[in-house]
Design a binder for these strands. Structure first.
Lengths: 167, 167
DNA sequence: TATTGTTATACTCTATAACTATA
DNA sequence: TATAGTTATAGAGTATAACAATA
């Protein structure tokens, strides 16, 4: 047990209720000006909004990205997919297992390197991705609205620069 | 079993090696212009760089943010901390268990609402957070460099707008 | 020797639901 | 009835290491 509580608190001392912070106004301190912190908040908000729009049922942004990478690069290997999405091959395997089980992708042995598989979308995968892409496009139009058309290009560039410089 | 592979592939067909995508140049398709996609890539890159800088040992960005919120709002309750960091109370509990086990925070019953705890940093918590803040500041200076001083204010504002509009 | 993919395993983060105790 | 906090539990996502097949 690392912490025991529930019946009796670990510390019997009572706090004076003097320094209780006001209602919901929480101070952020240095966090308020950190790019990294706001990057996380924005990403989380975007993630949740995407999930909500798609219906939350199944396909998360990462799966959507994988499907898109497969459609755009038909026949790519799992290793290449892992590198492109920044995931280890052992992470790619169960993700593709899931997509294959749903009938959205196929894996075929390649003739020229028999260690690897060529990954492709099935017709159903194409259809599901097309529908998903409509949701994603709507989601990103909402983001465009928030950011402002005139700011989008530079905003995207800064995000790309961060990923490139720290990746 | 949802997928059986390893010895023999599920499909005996061989792919022609014609459409194999070139080397490492993977096409992104519509992803290339999605704000949501690049938000995720930038956030992941920032996260990894932060972890690397701190030493990867222990404190992740989310823990760092919690410690900072506690320092900036001494005596706040776990529920308030959860709301401020966008996490359920059942997520806050084990996180604070961990921080308490490490001697970085204390939980004291409040006098005016005996259901809740007032959370505060210990002197060691203050010291650890101070050190962590140095790393975080260095990390964010690196981000500032990437983004450019002249762009930072607007960049931060756009991130804040996204979090506010979609949160 | 190195790489592709799978498996076993483990760890972290997250939430929902049920519970106790307070309010 | 509602809220603060804990616990049990479950699910998703991730990685490391070891392995078989192939290069």
């Amino acid at each position: 047990m690392t912490s025991r509580r529930g019946g009796e608190p670990h510390s019997p001392r009572m706090a004076a209720d003097v320094e209780e912070p006001a209602g919901e106004a929480v101070r952020l301190g240095p966090l308020a000006d950190y790019i990294g912190y706001h990057l996380r908040l924005a990403q989380e908000a975007s993630f949740r909004a995407f999930a909500q729009r798609v219906g939350d049922e199944d396909l998360k942004p990462q799966r959507f990205a994988m499907l898109t990478l497969i459609r755009e690069n038909p026949g790519l290997t799992q290793a290449a997919l892992g590198r492109a999405s920044g995931r280890d091959k052992s992470t790619v395997t169960p993700a593709l297992d899931d997509l294959e089980r749903r009938g959205l992708i196929t894996r075929e042995r390649t003739a020229r390197d028999r260690r690897s598989y060529a990954v492709r979308l099935t017709p159903e995968g194409e259809a599901v991705l097309a529908e998903l892409t409509r949701h994603a496009a709507a989601h990103d139009r909402a983001l465009d609205e928030i950011v402002g058309r005139e700011n989008k290009a530079e905003f995207l560039n800064l995000l790309r620069r961060i990923a490139a410089a720290l990746g």
